[in-house]
Design a protein around this nucleic acid. Structure first.
Lengths: 205, 205
DNA sequence: TAGATTGTTAATCGATTAACAATC
DNA sequence: TAGATTGTTAATCGATTAACAATC
């Protein structure tokens, strides 16, 4: 499945949630297409790839569509994740709903700063990073979120890989190197702002 | 300029920063290509579009390349931005370096919660959202970052548009509607996690 | 000089749109 | 029934790779 299609699935999901909230039960390919600036045939092709079936005249059942997308992205299969780095960003993420929305359950938090070790969030105690290897192993944690400074990102990644992690959600502005069977998904906040910067310039002209 | 090219420029920038940090002065198209999993000819075409000139045998000058990318993205033209929503995420962003890295300067913070209004961060006082319109106008702020709950996102966006904002960096999981001349750049944290979820499933199989 | 790497054009590949018969 | 919308195939478009002469 191409990356672009996956991103569209995720966008459909956001918008379908809004339509459902407004009380709608069905949506047509044309409605979805208009919002995302693509053709309705592209939307229908995406939905066919998903195994979704629509009805001429009424369109697609919103609840069914949501379920199909969630299943395709494996979001309904809750995976265990650890958070490494309890700075401002780590703290904000720890207390958020994002884990569940993305198909994960936050099971451990690590930091090296004695000042924050022991802090409790949502029933989880921040642990010393020296415990990382053991906890990942014993709790069978499969993924990790990195919110440490760029200078520490690679060493944290190395440690996580040694502990057997299969997926990394990386917030540090550093291109970490991992073995080919480990997946890295970069979340580059500054890149989002740069894109806004570029797009604001082009519209001005 | 296609969106995909812009995203690659941003990725090149991250990696070039690392190479510079390692003491390297030049980079070849082959080096950049390997890291991002694309062909070296694609990299060279990107760099030509940027106006960069390389030298056979040695490659491209890293410092020059960085400068060219920063100029192309308009990051060197610092724009004023406001932050709306001083919850966990807003607080984390407010204190971060991300604004400068992305070509913006944080000039105002708003929230509606009396408990946080008046809090000071980096010399900026959190203001009551009722002051938003006036401050945006008088300070000539061009962009805004939305970190309020999904339920409040649209009304905040409407207010910002009325005040004359041209660009929105939206962290709320809501597809906000704006006039065609206003740019919305969505930063969907949960979408990054969903992509990780999907990619972890495919590698397992 | 020799050879690695650029800049550029042509070939390939994949993704998107257009079109339309089928159907609820 | 009539007509809007689906599912699907063919046509188009754009992006990526391959190839190679030019050159430092």
């Amino acid at each position: 499945m191409p990356k672009a299609v996956i991103l569209r699935f995720e966008s459909y999901l956001t918008y379908l949630g809004q339509l459902k909230h407004e009380g709608k039960k069905t949506a047509t390919s044309e409605e979805l297409a208009r919002l995302f600036g693509i053709s309705s045939s592209r939307v229908r092709q995406d939905l066919v790839a998903l195994g979704a079936v629509g009805k001429p005249r009424s369109g697609y059942d919103i609840a069914e569509l949501e379920k199909a997308i969630i299943a395709a992205l494996d979001v309904d299969n809750v995976k265990k994740i650890a958070l490494v780095g309890f700075g401002n960003l780590g703290r904000a993420l720890a207390g958020s709903e994002v884990w569940r929305q993305g198909g994960f359950e936050l099971r451990a938090i690590f930091d090296k700063d004695p000042a924050v070790i022991g802090t409790e969030v949502h029933g989880l105690k921040v642990r010393n990073i020296t415990e990382l290897f053991g906890v990942i192993k014993s709790e069978k944690i499969e993924a990790a979120c990195i919110t440490v400074p760029a200078s520490a990102a690679q060493s944290v990644a190395d440690l996580l890989v040694t502990a057997g992690i299969r997926g990394v959600w990386n917030f540090s502005p550093f291109e970490i190197a991992v073995p080919p069977d480990v997946i890295v998904e970069n979340m580059r906040l500054e890149q989002g702002l740069m894109t806004l910067s570029f797009r604001m310039r082009t519209i001005k002209k």
